[in-house]
Design a binder for these strands. Structure first.
Lengths: 200, 200
DNA sequence: AGTCGCCATATTTGGTCTGA
DNA sequence: TCAGACCAAATATGGCGACT
């Protein structure tokens, strides 16, 4: 009885784990409250639990006012942003480099697509879209890619029909368009593999 | 001696406060670590201290990896955002309706793109991407669209060259591909107007 | 299943002491 | 002064049982 020594690993029994979670959640919130009042500092905790069927749940947090939490995490983000800028490579420059590479790929096609001003590599408006809007947009873009792909297929077919069995695109003799992989787009692999954007 | 009862208010003595802060910060981090491992949940703490001269200091946080912290606070933000949007229209049903519409549009093309199983309209993995990852992905998709567009241009040109001045695509006599607009993709207008995805 | 209390013990931590 | 180490009171919290 009393209390056995706790091994620091996932509590196996679902039930005990749940109870422990509740108790410790309370404790954690209390501690956070205490340090913030005793020491006059800003602090917050965020805890994510999972329902039994493994789907995400509402976050639990302190302070109870979401606005306060947001203000603190915003400060955190700002800070980490500054940090990163000092370090080696921040996101924007990462993008710049990546898109430069892409632009190069495009210019290899030898077309008008190389006009930098006409096709900006990044639009700040993207920063203002909500996460949901972004998801939606990704999905939409994926769908649009499908449509375009259909059209390319059509064109290839009719062209092949006219040209005979020769390769369709002189710029890409083996019919190997610059693939997603060659563009080095992070996370793109996942998207490709789920055939949202089937390879051309 | 021993320990006097602690009044839950700002500790007046600078020195004691500092000591207490250090001790309790350690405790808080430890507790956070414990709840996350014992219960298998994601959790983070962020604490902001102030230097003696009232200027902000580096945040103290757990997990020690800033990326993990970011991922958790991103999820937090997403959630609070969803909350707000939940009011009138359920998101998923909204998506369903939209993608259904798109599928209809695609099927109008009368091509192989209508294979539902081959081209899923929504992949749940999108739900797990952070906001930054989503932005990146949108940008990447936009760029990929450009590349593809270039290729379409190329094909159109070569085809037109072979066929003469006649319309390029028999399916679309006036050379009017289904535009973004006709797909009724929300926010797509903004993207188009910023010529990230110039009209075909 | 979920919640509450209880209680024995584990842990935390304010204050103090000690040694550079 | 500035860390640590130490100590004992104060807390936190596993496990259990009763109740719902």
């Amino acid at each position: 009885m009393g209390r056995s020594r706790l091994p620091l690993e996932l509590i196996p029994k679902e039930k005990s784990r749940k109870i422990t979670f509740q108790k410790r959640t309370m404790g954690l919130k209390k501690k956070t409250y205490e340090i913030s009042t005793l020491c006059g500092v800003d602090a917050c905790v965020i805890i994510y639990n999972w329902t039994s069927d493994d789907r995400p749940m509402e976050p639990i947090f302190w302070p109870s006012n979401p606005e306060e939490v947001k203000s603190i995490i915003n400060r955190y983000k700002e800070h980490s942003k500054e940090e990163r800028g000092l370090k080696t490579l921040d996101l924007s420059s990462f993008f710049e480099e990546r898109t430069k590479k892409i632009q190069k790929e495009i210019s290899k096609l030898g077309h008008q697509g190389t006009d930098q001003t006409k096709y900006p590599t990044w639009d700040d408006r993207l920063n203002d879209l909500s996460t949901d809007q972004l998801r939606e947009l990704v999905n939409a873009l994926g769908n649009k890619l499908e449509v375009i792909k259909s059209r390319v297929e059509l064109l290839k077919m009719s062209q092949a029909l006219l040209e005979g069995p020769a390769s369709v695109n002189p710029s890409y003799p083996n019919n190997a368009m610059p693939s997603t992989q060659s563009l080095h787009v992070p996370y793109m692999g996942a998207i490709d593999s789920m055939s949202l954007v089937p390879t051309l």
